[in-house]
Amino acid sequence: MNARDTILARIREALRVPAPLPHLKSRNAQAAAVPAAAGGHAGLTVLPLDVATPWLPDGGDSPAEQLQLLTENLEKLRATVVQVADAQAAAEYVARLAHDRGWGRVAYHDHSLVGPLAAALPCETYRVDAPACDKRALESCDAGITTCEALISQTGSLLVSSATGGGRGLSILPHVHVVVATLDQIVPTLGDALHQAKERHAGRLPSMLSFITGPSRTGDIERILVLGAHGPKELFVILVG
């Protein structure tokens, strides 16, 4: 037997004796688990989102609450959040940032929100998806501008994808990551963001979907927090609308 068949046979053999349910504290969880377990398998299709969401951290009910939570969470993570009126204002903000920081080259990808920002920059730009990204060129960039698929108020996370966010490298290799998004992209929970991604990319998942929660960080030296371990040291979130 090859390795695959041996391992699968061992698994089938091992599972012939059922394991008891874990010691659960809540009635809801038991109510969901017991009939499923009795049905011969767990089959807890309802549990994670429909039952568990009310137990997880709050994502806010109204759009205003969600925006406030998102901003608070991002600031706690030491990201910079800016809310601007329109694309024009966003472009001005990023141009000023590029000027103040003395950026020489900024990477971006083709997108209706990102394009105008790149066009207004006072420095050299590098478009990563025209058509393929040269990693050495990307490495020489001071910042990367991308859009995202969703912003999650519950945790202050952004969801970026390789299909709609300029590939894999753009949001991780440059020293500064600038994300531009619209207010209607805010969703309350991680579950909502995952649902949305599944629907949007049904049948053809992007090769990478990444939740980004603040600038890159490490606590490896004496458990002291340092930002910018390998990914971006700074994260700017520009909300348009």
């Binding site: 993570l77 090769s207 939740f211 929660t213 603040g214 890159s216």
Partner: peptide
Amino acid sequence: PMTCYNTLYA
């Protein structure tokens, strides 16, 4: 609240 990068590869 979340680890900084949680990435799904397909």
